[in-house]
Structure formats: structure tokens, C-alpha cells
Design a protein around this nucleic acid. Structure first.
Lengths: 152, 152
DNA sequence: TCACATTTAATTGTTCGCAATTGAATGTGC
DNA sequence: GCACATTCAATTGCGAACAATTAAATGTGA
């Protein structure tokens, strides 16, 4: 009875989906850490590289929209990637307000070295691909509903 | 065809469950922000308060185990909660290594003001309770499998 | 008892993440 | 063409998050 009540108490930590998501993010980070250390990347830097591996020469704004991050986060991060010789930052000629991010040859080459990362994560998840895809789709749908409330 | 290939590419951002979880965490934070601002709490501080509202006079270690956080994160956070007069930090008499965290009367009182937070989140999720519970359980199970790999 | 390991918080240094502001470039309405 | 608003990146300041180290208290084995 007491157990049943607490299982329904919305103010209990264990009942909060947000904490589940929050703590899962940290758990993922701990799994990614040793894999990304070998590439010399942090997880947010890895996300930026994923964006650039899909499409190169992208304005900061567009990276921000894809990753839901702003310039306050991206500007110093991109400067660190530039210092690591993985990207180049140049002002756009058409619109001088924009800074375009392009991969260096080293940045391109890193994609090959990063190819094994997703399967290592899959292995650590100890879960079938189809289950993960289903979960991912549910989480993305939830995220998008939350973003709709706060206006993006 | 090309579309189908990219939908299976494990190196694509959109196919990564980790990014889904990562971006959902930020989406949740943006929804929580205005609600917690009224309480004078950040989200991690709110999590610590949830722990203390369930059980008071808890060592830092135990808070860390419940939230998967270490002293490097918790020590300064708890000092800020103490500065806000929500908790008190005292060395344990039985074991001088431990610091016990106890709620102040203001800390206790804040629980009432925080009571409406979960239902606001539920509303923003635009999702039934049972769906959210099912998702939460799946995410927790995934998190625990990931934590098992890295040794907690 | 005494050397040694373990436990617990605290500290230091680096990197995110975001709010708020700034400044330059661009777009607009008249 | 010119005042005005908007857009974009950069900056500043604060609060996580974590690795690595430190220091004190406690536990353990000989």
C-alpha cells in the first residue's frame, strides 16, 4: 500500500522521466569517453564533427540548429576544434555576419577513425538495433513536443 | 534508395539514440527552467532537493549514488544550497569523514511550492502518464545496462 | 600497536550549456 | 537614402560535470 502510493508519487525521483533521461545522458557519456579520448574529442565536439561529416562548410547557426546549441556554447568549442586542426573558420563572403565551418584534411580523415564508435555503443547498450531505433524515435518525438512548448 | 541507405547509416546524427537522449535532456531543462526559477533552484539542485525531501540528513556520498554525481559536482552545489539557506552541512559524529546534509525549515517548506512542478512537466510532455512510465522504464533499463559496462 | 590501504569530501583545472549583452552586417519601411 | 529593426557570432558570467589530486578519518593485517 505504502509502496503503491510511492510508486505513484510524482514528486519521487524514481518516478521522473526527466531524471531517467538526465542520468542516461551521463551514462552514455561515460561509455563514449574512452572511445572519444582516442580521437581527441569530447562528446559535444564529436556531435559537431558528425554534422560536418554529413555536410561541410556550414555556418555556425546551422550547426546550432541541428544540435540545439547556441553561439555561447559553439564559439569556444569550434575554436578548440580549430586549435586541434580539425576545422577552419572563415567569414562568409556573401554575408559577413556568418562564420563558415569547414573540415581540414585531418578533420575529414578522422571520420574513418570514428567509424567503429557507433557499434561500440551498440554493444554497450546490450540491446537490439530495432529496439534502440524504436526508443530513439519515441525520445525524439517527446523532445520535439517539449521544444514546441518552449518555442523551439 | 539513397534515403534508405542514410536511414541505416550508424554514423548519421539522426540515427543516434545517444543524441536523442542528449537533446531530450536539454529540452527538458528548457521546460524546467522557468518553473525552477520561481523556486530559486537549478535542475541539479532540484534533484538534490528531491532526494532530501524523500529522506533527510543524508551523507554526500548517498546523494551522489542516487544521482550518479561525484563530490566534485556536489560539494560546490551543496554549498550554494547552504548559502540559499535550504540545507545545512554538518560533519557526522560517528564518522568524521562524512558530511551530512539536512534540510532547513525553508528547505522543507519549499517542497510544497514545488508540488506543481511534475504536473507542469507532464502537461508539456503532451503524453499520457502510462506512456511516460513505459518510456521511463525503458530508459532506466538502458541506463543501467550502460552503467554496468563502465562499472557503475 | 603500527604500517598500509580504503573511504570520504574537498580542491583544481578543463569543458560544456545558457542567459544576457555587445557589435557588426544585413534587411525593412518610409 | 536613411532611420530602424533584425540577424549572427562573440563575449561575459555563472553553474554544472568530471578527471585527477589532496588530506583527513577510518579500517585491516601482521
Amino acid at each position: 500500500m505504502a509502496r503503491k502510493l510511492s510508486a505513484l508519487d510524482p514528486q519521487r525521483l524514481d518516478n521522473q522521466i526527466c531524471f531517467a533521461v538526465y542520468s542516461a545522458t551521463h551514462a552514455f557519456n561515460r561509455v563514449y569517453k574512452p572511445l572519444l579520448d582516442r580521437l581527441g574529442l569530447t562528446y559535444p565536439q564529436y556531435l559537431v564533427m558528425l554534422v560536418l561529416w554529413e555536410r561541410d562548410d556550414v555556418p555556425v547557426k546551422e550547426i546550432g540548429e541541428k544540435l540545439f546549441l547556441d553561439s555561447g556554447t559553439l564559439t569556444p568549442l569550434l575554436k578548440r576544434l580549430e586549435a586541434a586542426h580539425l576545422v577552419k573558420r572563415t567569414r562568409s563572403h556573401e554575408d559577413e555576419r556568418q562564420v563558415l565551418i569547414a573540415l581540414t584534411p585531418q578533420g575529414h580523415a578522422l571520420k574513418e577513425k570514428a567509424r567503429s564508435v557507433p557499434q561500440s555503443i551498440l554493444a554497450a547498450s546490450d540491446c537490439s538495433v530495432s529496439e534502440l531505433v524504436a526508443m530513439k524515435d519515441e525520445i525524439v518525438a517527446l523532445r520535439d513536443r517539449l521544444n514546441a512548448v518552449t518555442g523551439e
